[in-house]
Each structure stands twice: as structure tokens, then as C-alpha cells.
Computed example of a mutant assay.
Amino acid sequence: MNKPALLVMDMQNGIVSRFQDNQEMLRAVQKSVETARRHNIPVIFVRVTFSEGYPEVSPRNKAFSQIRQMGGMTVSDDATQIHESVQPHNGEPVVTKYRVSAFAGSTLEVILRSKQIDTLILTGIATSGVVLSTLREAADKDFVIQVLSDACADPDAEVHRVLTEKVFPRQADVLTVDDWIENLDSSRAQETD
């Protein structure tokens, strides 16, 4: 029997603010969090942030060296706090990462192993960033993976489509939040029969 956890990735103020127009995606993430809690599936939040002075940022890192130059995205910065639409409850971990993948420089794998999690349900922003990188690394680590396609978003809708329809299915089950909920409910009904 699989032991799942829902990863809510990069749903932090500075990133969600760029996707405020995508209310359907925000509602899908909220619905996935509420469903996971109702089904006693651990919810783990992942955010990207840096220490003051940016000691984690290499000048060779094209994306993150720009953040270093512009400032912000530090641990105490409002941009790195989990968005109000999906606030963690007491006891739900908030994992800090220093690169794109949820595993990179974080305690995520330690938390998953300590809870004996073997199945990851992925949500977050961006599909071509944290979702893709985390999926690839999780597959290499032999996790069972599900991607909730409507609870992910990307600045480029075509990139999101290609990833969720053509790339991700090679290593993960890709389904909507409603389909995932239906699967959970039918599994629960079978257990009680």
C-alpha cells in the first residue's frame, strides 16, 4: 500500500503574485490541500529562499545570480512566505530549498524517509521549473509520482501542456485534482466494504 504526501511547491507570495489571474489553478491547489488533509495525507510546503548575503548563490547560476543582484527572496522577505490561500497548519512542514528542485539543499528527503513516504503528489509553480525538476529527481529516487495538472501553472501555457501531456506521463501519473479526489474516494469506499 502506497504512503503518499502532497507537495505544495513554490506557492509563495513572490511567485503566486505573477499568477493571480489564474484563479482556477489557485483554487485547484487549495482543493488539493483540503482534500489531502481530509484524507490524512501529509501536506508538505516547499519554498525557495536564500540567507542574507546570498551565500548559497553562485555567480555561475544564471537565474539565481539575478536575484542576488536585484535583492529580495531572503528568508524573512514577504515574497518567500507561503501564500495566504494555502497557509500551512500546525505540524505541516515548510521546507526551504536553494535551487529549483524541491530536493536541492533541503530537508525534504529526510522528512519523506522519516514518514516512510513512497508516493509524491506534485502541485506548484512553475510546471517547467520546480515541478519538472522535482519530478525528475523523485523518479531517480524511485518514488511513485502523481502530478495534479490543474494545480500546476507555467508562464507558458504551451510548455505546461507539452510537459503534462507528453513528458510527465513517462514517469508519473498525470491527473486533475477532481480525478485524484475521485480515486481517493473510491479507494476509501473499497477499504470500508
Rank of each mutant, 00 (worst) to 15 (best):
Q146Y: 01
A172N: 04
S106Y: 03
E92V: 07
D78V: 09
A102V: 07
R136N: 13
D142I: 05
R37P: 06
V144G: 03
T164E: 08
S101H: 08
M1F: 09
V130S: 01
D10V: 14
H39Y: 15
Y54T: 03
A157F: 09
M9C: 11
L108Y: 11
V33P: 05
D179V: 10
E56N: 01
T49Q: 14
R188C: 07
L148S: 00
Q171T: 13
N61K: 07
N2L: 10
V8W: 00
I15L: 10
Q190Y: 05
Q12T: 05
E137F: 08
A139N: 14
M25T: 08
P55T: 12
R47G: 10
L163C: 13
Q23W: 11
A138I: 04
T123S: 10
Q12P: 11
R113S: 08
R170Y: 14
T49A: 15
T74V: 07
G14D: 01
D140Q: 10
T80P: 01
T164A: 09
I44T: 03
H83G: 01
A138R: 02
N90T: 11
R27K: 15
D154G: 06
D185M: 12
K166V: 09
L132G: 02
S58W: 01
K97W: 07
N2R: 11
R136F: 10
S76E: 07
L6W: 08
A104R: 07
F168K: 04
M9A: 08
L148T: 00
S149I: 05
V57Y: 13
Y54S: 00
I111T: 09
P88Q: 02
P55G: 02
I181H: 04
M70Y: 14
R18L: 15
I117N: 06
A63K: 15
I41M: 04
V48P: 00
S101E: 10
T107N: 12
P88S: 07
L108I: 06
E24K: 09
V94N: 02
L135N: 11
L26H: 14
E109P: 01
H89N: 13
V177H: 02
N2V: 08
L184C: 07
A5L: 04
K115D: 14
L184W: 09
V29N: 03
H160S: 05
S101L: 07
